[in-house]
Structures are given as C-alpha cells and as structure tokens.
C-alpha cells in the first residue's frame, strides 16, 4: 500500500480513538513531544510501557481478587498504579474505569471489584488493539520512506 494511503488509514484510526474517548489530550501531548522534540519512537516507547504495565497489573489484580480473603489495600495500590499509567499515556477510558474501580475497592466490594476488573480488561484490550494497529501502520509508513 502506498505511504499516502497508509497515512490516511493512520489518521482515520487516530481520529476514531480521540472521537470515541479512548484517548484524550494527554496522548496528543505525547505526539507533540515526539514531533517537536525530534525524538522518534517516543510515543511507541510510552505506549509499550503502558501496555506492559497494564497487562501485568491486570494479572496481579485477577490473582488478588481470587484469594479467599481479598487484600483491598493491595488491590487499591495496583489500581492506583494503573490509573497513573493510563493518565500518562492518555488512556482516558481505562483511567475513568480505574477511578470507579478504586471506589469499589474503598467500599471493600469484592463482587463490584471483579466486575470493574472485567470492564478495565475489556477497555484495555480494545485500546491495546488500536495501539498495535497504530504502531504497525507507523512502521509500514516508516519502511516506505
């Protein structure tokens, strides 16, 4: 596919990510830091760190919530960490879900936390797919330059 068509596809993907609220202004800031600062690969680095962090934290949360006695302080600490990572990358939907998750944690609502984890996981998987598509398109564009 020609570079122009790939670029068009990338722009459409990014527009849909912003329009659907998957990402917010912070993600735009990352793109600007990359473009203005002449640091190619910066967005990819942050996105990869976020995806690795989120994957690990979601696994830890699932394990904690399976325990007979749930340590809600630990759960809260992990959700806080995920909220921070998602805010840094501009993952708006994941961040909002984490905020609701923390409230359930503070209420020590185990069933609510299990449901919140399922929502966080879905939001994250959806975003990760989009990020992966974005990075693939960027690589393809790069390869044609």
């Amino acid at each position: 596919m020609a570079a122009a068509a790939l670029r068009e596809q990338l722009n459409a993907l990014l527009s849909s990510m912003f329009a659907s609220g998957l990402v917010d202004d912070q993600f735009q800031q990352l793109q600007m830091l990359q473009d203005d600062g002449g640091t190619p690969g910066f967005v990819a680095e942050v996105v990869t760190l976020f995806c690795d962090d989120a994957d690990r934290i979601i696994s830890e949360l699932a394990a904690l919530l399976e325990q007979p006695v749930v340590d809600f302080d630990k759960v809260d600490a992990y959700v806080h960490q995920l909220k921070g990572s998602s805010a840094s990358v501009g993952a708006q939907k994941v961040k909002f879900t984490c905020m609701q998750f923390r409230q359930l944690c503070q209420d020590k609502n185990r069933d609510g936390c299990i449901m919140a984890l399922a929502v966080v996981r879905n939001e994250f998987y959806d975003l990760r797919n989009k990020f992966q598509n974005m990075l693939q398109l960027e690589q393809q564009i790069q390869a044609q330059q």
């Binding site: 990352l30 910066f42 942050v46 760190l49 976020f50 962090d53 960490q81 921070g84 990572s85 840094s88």
Partner: peptide
C-alpha cells in the same frame, strides 16, 4: 519509581 512516568 515507575518507568512510564520517568520516560515522560
């Protein structure tokens, strides 16, 4: 402590 925040 978190790399993502340090990178940013």
């Amino acid at each position: 402590d978190e790399e993502i925040h340090r990178v940013l």
